[in-house]
């Protein structure tokens, strides 16, 4: 018996070692193999038929794969390719057309600027519209379409149109109609953005949306902070004839009270050569979106 246990321990170690070696060999084998492996089947119709009565379960499986694919690409140090993200989401939502989370999160993954996301707001909108075809009364999808137009495509007119549509749907949030009006009147600016995120954060059912809203609000605050500071730098230059070398110069001049920090607590950077104020490169708020200040 002791000999059997010793043999099993030895063989177990060999198995783990060989698997580690084999993994490396396989990684070198066919780099693009991941694509075929991940999708298995390209056509949603074929897959739906092939998964027999387990479509919902297979949909879950593909959703998990989509999340892993997206997460894995975001974290990878190599070249980030998101070309399989849409097919995975398309398969997931074809298998289970009422998979709400897959539409909403999928749209976020797709719309987010490269390299943080796929940078494909067009595909995000296509996915949400597919969701609306499957569930025409789902006002959240219409809201999300408006949001993509507003935030990623910088198109406040179309966004306002979608917010209006969402507001017309039964059971829709009451703030959608006012939001549509503000968006249309003010265009794409920080004030309407702030209003949008505040509403999303207030009404979110999912923790992720709350955190996202919080994050975007902090970004907006940081952008406002940068604008104020840059104005102060300009005033200093008008008075002193040169850009301040550092924050203490501004403090001594009485233009700011202490070394300014972004909402995450990291000090802003001051470029003495051109007077530009930026976030600390280590700040989690990077990169800031491009949204104009309120007129």
């Amino acid at each position: 018996m002791r000999a059997a246990i010793a043999a099993m321990v030895l063989l177990g170690v060999a198995v783990v070692g060989l698997q580690a070696l084999d993994d490396r060999a396989r990684a070198a084998l066919v780099p693009q193999e991941a694509a075929a492996d991940l999708l298995y089947v390209q056509s949603p119709d074929v897959l739906t038929r092939a998964s027999l009565s387990y479509t919902a379960l297979v949909a879950d499986l593909y959703w998990i794969r989509a999340v892993q694919y997206y997460g894995g690409m975001r974290l990878s140090n190599g070249e980030k390719k998101y070309d399989l993200l849409y097919p995975l989401l398309d398969l997931t939502t074809s298998l289970d057309p009422r998979f709400d989370i897959a539409y909403r999160f999928g749209a976020i993954f797709l719309a987010e600027d490269y390299p943080g996301g796929a940078g494909r707001p067009d595909l995000a909108i296509a996915l949400l519209q597919k969701g609306l075809r499957a569930q025409p009364g789902k006002w959240q999808f219409a809201e999300d379409v408006g949001f993509v137009h507003y935030w990623w495509l910088h198109d406040p007119t179309t966004a306002a149109d979608w917010f209006n549509r969402a507001g017309d749907m039964p059971g829709a949030a009451e703030w959608l109609k006012p939001l549509a009006a503000v968006t249309l009147a003010e265009g794409s600016n920080r004030e309407s953005s702030r209003r949008l995120w505040r509403e999303i954060g207030r009404t979110a059912e999912v923790e992720w949306f709350r955190r996202q809203a919080d994050f975007r609000l902090k970004q907006l605050d940081a952008m406002d902070g940068i604008d104020v500071l840059e104005r102060a730098v300009q005033m200093y230059r008008e008075r002193a004839g040169a850009y301040p070398a550092s924050w203490p110069d501004l403090i001594r001049a009485g233009l700011v009270r202490r070394i300014p920090a972004d909402p995450t607590g990291l000090p802003f950077r001051l470029d003495a050569s051109n007077g530009k104020v930026t976030l600390d490169p280590a700040s989690s708020l990077n990169p800031l979106p491009a949204i104009e200040q309120a007129r």
Binding site: M8, L11, G12, V15, L18, Q19, L21, D22, A25
Partner: peptide, 13 residues
Amino acid sequence: ALTCAYGLTYIAL
């Protein structure tokens, strides 16, 4: 060869 070695070792185990 490597994969076979892996498989055969696992079989022995």
